[in-house]
Each structure stands twice: as structure tokens, then as C-alpha cells.
Amino acid sequence: MRASRALRPSYRQAFGLSPGQKLVVVSSTWGPESLLGAAPGLLLRLAEQLPFDEFRILLAPHPNIVAGHSSWQFGEYTAAARRAGVTIPKDVDAWRTAIIAADIVVGDHGSVPFYSAALGIPLILATAPVESVDPRSPIAKLLDTAPRIDIRGDLATQIRDVIIDHDPDRYSPITTFTTSEPDASPANLRSLMYRTMKFPEPAEPAELSALPMPSQPLHAPHSYLAVVRSGRNRTASIIRYPAERLRSGYETPRGTYIVVGTTEPRRRWMQLADAVVGDPSSQTTAWIAETLAALPGSMLAAAPDEAGVWYLGDRTGTIVTATGDACHLPLVTPLACHHLAQSRPLSEFAGEWEIDCADRILVVTVRTVGHGSFASAQPDL
């Protein structure tokens, strides 16, 4: 990991992180005193409270958790968190690149939080059972020193504060005991192995290798709540949370819209959806009409075509397109919902919009491409 630190920008890019977006790594060792054992609801609460355009979350579970409970049971246990956008890599070693790319680690008394502190990554502890570790160990000293998260408090504020207030050298008096010979493990281990085998050691130096790139980007929720605030001259701000937040009891402010993706939707979400978002297709406009006919409670349906242009249609048969940076175009859907909720026709939505999302100004262009009568076909029962 020390050899890979210079590749942090590359790892973040491979994870699909936008500039300024924060990666939260949640690390749990195994056993009843671990993060998942002692605070089983924290992972989902983090996903429900952290705006996902500002934060992405990755879980780094100890392999013994799956080994002890089975992959099926672990998958059921984490299903809601996955729907809320939490990434749980299949590769048990993916935590290494995640730690390097991370902006903060939420952990327990396992080794991963200690490694992250040694790398200068901000750390906050969900559980710190000092009685479970040797009181003379460096990990015990870290448990006594690192801040604790208030599980029932405002998690987003706590996460932001730890990131802002962090000093990379804060834990160096403790983490200096990680190893007495940093970066020397390849040479030391190779020498030991060859001495054990009683073979002559190769003449070329033992090299450190950087970690491989992440194989997949981080997840984002397919269904979400969007809080939209419109400004003057086609400007707006949008904050998005996972749709799982609907189950949490958190207040839903005025101007919040439910956008449901067609991947693993919950039935109640579809019944409540203000908008439905589909997958890329060559038949996008037909899909919009058929979807709105099947979901009479939705005001809008949207999906990209095969070229990445977004199409949005309402119940009058009006179709508009949105173009711009591909990763920003999904934000047009809740913005169009807000426009329709103010009793404005979708045709007047056309123009250039500036959207403030996670402290970034995003520009998209909307054009009206068609009008017509809404398809009145009823869904098959």
C-alpha cells in the first residue's frame, strides 16, 4: 500500500469517483464486538444519511464474516445497504486500493483501520473494544486516541468534521510501531525464504509492486430521493439520497421527488414514484409511453438512448432530450419533476440549465423534440 500511494488519483478514477467526491470505507473485523456485530445498523444509516453525489461508500468486511455466516446470509444481511448504493467488492483484497483512495475510514479494532491511520487517512471508530486487544499494542493506543462516531447523531456532519479537521500526522507516534523496517519486507522476506530453502538468493533486487487497479467502479443507488430547489434563470440545486431512506423515518422536505430505477425496484417505490428511469434502448420513446401507461401515479419517465442522449416524457406525450456530460444527465429527471410539479408544461423546460450538486456546477442542455397524445393503453392485468 505504501508503494501504491502515488496512484491514488488513478485508483479514484477507476472507482468512478468525481473530483471532490468523498469515499467512505467502512471496515469491519469479525465477531460480536466488531463494527457489523456491535453496530449492525450503522452501514445502512450511513447510506441513508450521506448524499450520494457527495459521498460513495465501500464496505471492507473481514473474510471470516462470510465464512462464518455463508455468502447467502451475508448477502441477505447487506441487501438493503447494497440497494442504498454501498459497494461490497467480491475481491477480498479490494480494501487495499479502497484505503488508498479513501477520504475517511469508519472502523473498529481490526487491522484495516490501523493501516489506514498509518497511511494518514482520517479515521473514526464505530466500536473500540479495548479489552479485546493487548493493552500494550499499538492498536490499543489507537483505540484510545481516535474519535468515536455517535451512531444516533448526525452522521454526515460527523464524517465531514473528521475529514476537515484531520491532521495526517495525528497518529504517527502510534503508527510508527507498524514496522521497524518500512518498505523492506520484499528483501527481508525473500532472504528468509531462500535461507530456509538453503538456496542462493537471486542477485537482482527484490522489488515492491503497486496494487492493481480496481476492476469495477463504485455503485450508486438505482432508486433515490431528490431534494430540488430552483433558482433564477434556469438554475437549481439538487441533493440526492437513496430511496432506502424512505424506511428510515427521516423527514422528507417539500420539493423531494422519488425517482425509481428499473433495476431491483421495490413495489412500494414504484407505486410512489414521481419518475421512472430505464436502461439505454433504441426504443426509448415507446418505452416512455408504455411505462407511464403502466404506472398511472408517475408524472415522468426517462431513459437514455443507445448514444447516451437522455429522453424524458410526460403524460401529455411531450418528449424532451438532455445532453451534456453523461454522468450529470440523470440529474435532469428530478429537475423535470420539479418543473412539472409547479404546473408548468414540459415543453417550457427546454433551455440550458445550471445545476448545483455536491458543490459542483453542472451544465445540461434540454431541447423539445416532440408533442403528441399520451398513449392510453392500459397495462395487462
Rank of each mutant, 00 (worst) to 15 (best):
Arg232Trp: 06
Asp108Phe: 02
His166Ser: 13
Arg190Asn: 08
Glu204Gln: 06
Ile149Leu: 15
Ala220Ser: 12
Pro221Trp: 11
Ala243Leu: 11
Ile121Asp: 00
Ala187Gly: 10
Met197Trp: 15
Pro182Arg: 08
Ser116Ile: 01
Thr145Ala: 15
Arg152Trp: 03
Pro205Trp: 00
Pro186His: 08
Ala203Phe: 02
Arg195Met: 09
Ala117Tyr: 07
Asn188Val: 15
Lys141Gly: 04
Phe177Pro: 00
Phe199Cys: 07
Ser180Tyr: 06
Arg234Met: 15
Ala118Gln: 05
Pro135Ala: 09
Leu123Met: 04
Pro202Asp: 01
Thr176Asn: 12
Ala203Tyr: 02
Arg240Gln: 10
Val162Arg: 11
Ala220Arg: 13
Val228Asp: 05
Ser230Pro: 07
Leu123Trp: 04
Ser172Ala: 13
Leu189Asp: 10
Asn233Gly: 06
Asp161Lys: 14
Gly231Ser: 09
Arg245Ile: 01
Leu142Ser: 09
Ser185Val: 12
Ala140Ile: 01
Pro205Tyr: 00
Pro200Leu: 07
Ile149Lys: 10
Tyr115Arg: 07
Pro129Lys: 05
Leu125Phe: 04
Arg152Thr: 07
Glu131Met: 08
Phe114Pro: 01
Asp134Met: 02
Ile239Tyr: 01
Ser191Leu: 14
Pro135Ser: 14
Pro182Gln: 07
Ile164Cys: 08
Ser209Arg: 14
His166Asn: 15
Tyr115Met: 10
Arg240Lys: 05
Arg245Ala: 14
Asp183Val: 13
Pro129Asp: 13
Thr178Phe: 14
Ala126Val: 06
Ile151Tyr: 03
Thr175Lys: 05
Met193Leu: 14
Ser209Gly: 03
Thr176Met: 13
Leu142Met: 10
Ser237Asn: 07
Ala146Lys: 09
Thr175Ala: 08
